[in-house]
């Protein structure tokens, strides 16, 4: 047998295993895993550790599948923006067809497996999340409205609800408020970033609030959403999964967040340029800690409950 069929022209762009993994947006997946884990852990119903592990894994795979479908649909604009040019499709390592196939197969696989491992409600919620992110956000609204960040944030906010559904098989005020926390957090988080980075969304035809409505309006939006966020965070603390520890964290962080949003709101671009966007950068950094600490406090409350310490007694 000869090796005549072997193509000696080495295609250095041929994909490695890691390139397919990169299609699943591992960084986004880490937030999905963390918030879904919290949603599952704070639920009042116990879940076998292996079922919990498998459920979180399938939720992560579902999130990754929607990331792959997002990269498939957005390949045209990813080629235009510096930040995304090195992604697997624009760099030529993975074809658009491969990304589509991987995304579709993993979407069906993850929803089906989650429904089998946990329950149908959890599988259905995951299916809706993928549909919402891929069809409603990516295909429909992302390139049409400057509120795209708000819509996209909704898709990213579902994982704690799915985690809760894995344990309880349903939806409740606690899981809806966990959804609302991430939902209201996303706009100020991304718009604070947009105020100090010169993104090239405009070149790619994606309407960003800073471009369509101006930076002054973006500052006002940040403040508005910060107030909504504070209301949601405090309300979450009053439910069965809140408690004194969470409430202290929420009051302190939301006071800091509103102060940061107010500082961003009351100054103009000249002042912002003068100190290299100190307030905007500060608010963005705070927003990163904000979400992690809120969910972390919920975990602490759940961890203290077996010792009679967590919750409202």
């Amino acid at each position: 047998m000869s090796d005549a069929s072997f193509d000696t022209s080495c295609d250095t762009r041929e994909a490695e295993f890691g390139d397919y993994f990169a299609l699943l947006k591992p960084r986004v997946m880490s937030l999905v895993v963390f918030t879904a884990l919290v949603g599952l852990a704070v639920a009042p119903v116990g879940v076998h550790p292996l079922i919990a592990f498998a459920s979180i894994l399938f939720i992560a795979v579902g999130g990754g599948a929607s990331g792959a479908l997002n990269m498939w649909w957005d390949a045209d604009i990813d080629r235009l923006m510096k930040r995304t040019q090195s992604r697997p499709i624009p760099s030529g390592k993975v074809s658009e067809g491969e990304a589509l196939a991987l995304g579709v197969i993993l979407s069906f696989f993850s929803c089906l497996m989650l429904a089998l491992a946990a329950n149908i409600m959890a599988g259905a919620l995951l299916a809706f999340t993928i549909f919402f992110y891929v069809v409603i956000y990516t295909m429909w609204l992302k390139r049409w409205t400057p509120q795209n960040i708000v819509i996209g944030g909704a898709a990213g906010a579902f994982p704690p609800m799915i985690g809760w559904a894995v344990a309880t098989g349903g939806v409740s005020i606690e899981s809806v408020l966990m959804f609302a926390l991430t939902f209201a957090w996303t706009p100020p988080h991304f718009w604070a970033l947009a105020l100090f980075t010169k993104g090239d969304y405009a070149n790619a035809g994606v309407p960003m609030l800073t471009v369509t409505h101006g930076r002054k309006a973006t500052r006002a939006h940040i403040l508005g959403y910060s107030l909504v966020l504070a209301f949601v965070a405090i309300a979450l603390g009053m439910t069965s999964i809140g408690g004194p520890t969470y409430m202290v964290v929420a009051v302190v962080l939301n006071a800091m967040f509103i102060k940061g949003a107010w500082d961003v709101f009351r100054r103009n671009d000249d002042a912002s340029e003068a100190d290299k966007h100190k307030a905007e950068r500060g608010l963005f950094k705070l927003s990163l800690a904000y979400l992690f600490l809120h969910y972390g406090a919920l975990l602490i409350e759940a961890g203290l409950k077996p010792y009679g310490l967590g919750g409202w007694g």
Partner: peptide, 28 residues
């Protein structure tokens, strides 16, 4: 060839994922 190594890595990765999946389904 370097290409063979890359393809082997890809196949190995997929193989490990499949083994892990079988083990997980067994455990569930």
């Amino acid at each position: 060839h370097e290409l063979h190594k890359r393809r082997f890595g890809r196949n190995l990765g997929l193989g490990l994922v499949l083994i892990g999946f079988v083990a997980l389904v067994y455990g569930i």
